[in-house]
Amino acid sequence: MIEVSNLTKRYAGHTAVSGISFTVKRGEIVGLVGSNGAGKSTTMRILSCFLPATSGSVRVAGYDVFLQSDEVRRRIGYMPENNPLHPEMRVREYLKFRARLKGLSRQRSRERVDTVMQQCGLVDEQRTIIAHLSKGYRQRVGLADALVHEPELIILDEPTIGLDPRQIRSVRQLIKNLAGRHTVLVSSHILAELEMTCNRMVILHKGKIAACDTPDNLQALMGGKGQVIAEIAGPGLEMQAAFDLLADVAHCDISASGGEYLRCALTPLDGVDLRPQVFALAMERGWRVRELTRGRHSLEDIYVRLTRPEEEES
């Protein structure tokens, strides 16, 4: 659906995006992650034909965004950052205007506007002037606008920025519901948010791709060591010795954890899951176990790790 190869965009004085390549398949939900200024919005603006690329090629649904921008624009629904709307219009009026602008017939635009208002929960607000809507509702209007002409590709630039947790949840649900029928490219600077919705993530850092994979693979890539945390009540010294004797333990750290419990952080060799061994050992010695988990690196950590080295360089 999207083929980006060697895309570079230079503004006067600085390079916003330098030589990135990635592809998005039909029906995928792909997240574009990066800190502020990483080049997310620039990439999306080029994809939506608003800005020309300095070099490189971008194709959407097989059409070149520069040479066949009309065909591309017919196939995308784009919601820019900050979701600009005409504040003086009413919700229904605005959506109808956008539908007609995107070439839908009168009859069809009426049907589609009804459908997307239902989909985005705007039916009760259809007569409200956009300026009087809350931020969450405005975001829904932006989403409804992106969906109104049933585009093949939906590009959402920071759709949840500035929303409260409940609203974020509802927007996330909306995006999830689009899966399958549409291809979605969504950006955010909050990783946790995309972790739950996306099939794949492209992590951008300073205009370059730092990583591009599924959330699970990223997880495996970075957190492969699979550290095990166990909270056990028992004699500390004996515990240390017992863990050191286990063949698969590379390193063991024991610290106090409130009351009689000790917190043991066990690092395995070669990604072995240590949990059964630890549990068996505790049973054998008669220790009480109150927690036994395998630590997951949050994507947040991965992100920080991926982006830190370069920052130190510069």
């Binding site: 608003f50 009309d70 995308i76 784009y78 820019p80 900050n82 600009p84 070439g103």
Partner: peptide
Amino acid sequence: GTFETLMTTP
């Protein structure tokens, strides 16, 4: 910013 939403329609 509505110029952006305008110019990204066909």
